[in-house]
Amino acid sequence: MSKVNEYNPSMLRGLWALTVRELKKWLKDPVMVLMLVLQPLIWMGLLGKSININAIFSSKSLVNLEIPDIQVPGSLLNPPVNGVLIIPGAFITQQLQQMFSTIGTKVMQDTFGVIDYFSYMAIGMVSMIVMTTTMFTGMSIVWDRRLGFLDKVLSTPVPRGAIIFAKVLNATLRAIFQATVILALAYLLGLQLSSNFTLLNLLGVYAAIFLLGIGLSSVFIAFSLRSTRMERPMQIISLITMPLMFASNTFFPISLMPYWIQVVAKVNPLTYLTDAVRQLTIMPLDLSTLMFDFICLGIFASILATIGIMLSWRYLTK
């Protein structure tokens, strides 16, 4: 110990070390992963399956329709004939059912962009898991602070930025992982991928999640750093999750919502994530819409990350 070595920790080395620490912790705590997946899974399995909107707009809604035979006087026909024309009720029922089915599909298609509600809302659940995972993971910095780990790290020469970025990166990676789990589960439960879905689209999905994950986690880390009580970030999460989900296209298209909710939904980043992921997975891809979604996500990510990282930075170097 006579010789004193001075090394310079690089940003990358510090970032790597701190991120690996988080990932190791994560692997050793599978219960948390499960808990986070459980909520969207329940939503998906119960709400997505039980609110069976497809059924309303399908011939099934008309199965109990009993139409009596209709007698049309021959004189009404063109050219008029003698006698009476009898149209069997069963025939009309069948015709109506077919028409209704066609209309229903059209309504579903025009309203949701897909003909199957479960697929629609399952993708909404992907957004939900991205949101809750990034927030919960960002919150772990409260523990780091309470347990003195943060102070210890701050007394080492590791770049301050590495401390924040490791948290952001970890939250985002987790969100990507959890989203993959939800997508896979949804697929097993009957999610219908669009015909032009490829693995490349999946990369697009990850890119979208990455953008929102970085934005949301940065803000949440900054907020958690400043709250001395562990419960506070928890309360905030449970308080804002629901409103953010309902005031977005998670469950329902915003075009059919009252005007004031539409305004909220349009500044709600979840809307753009959900739409981007839907475009990439279950809808016939519309490139210009997708581009717009990504631009919005990019803007949200830059604004939120800038605010979050600046606030954290100020806290860590105060």
């Binding site: 070595n5 090394y7 310079n8 920790p9 690089s10 080395r13 510090g14 790597w16 070390a17 701190l18 620490r21 190791k24 912790k25 050793k28 705590d29 347990l147 003195g148 780990f149 102070d151 210890k152 790290v153 007394s155 080492t156 020469p157 590791v158």
Partner: peptide, 27 residues
């Protein structure tokens, strides 16, 4: 620095913790 609290990560092994510190110093 040897802090007042136990700051080592519970989920990691002792060795992993020491190596984490080494990483933070860039050794």
């Amino acid at each position: 620095v040897v802090p007042q609290e136990y700051t080592a990560d519970e989920d990691l092994t002792g060795y992993e913790n020491v190596m984490l510190c080494a990483d933070l110093y860039g050794i």
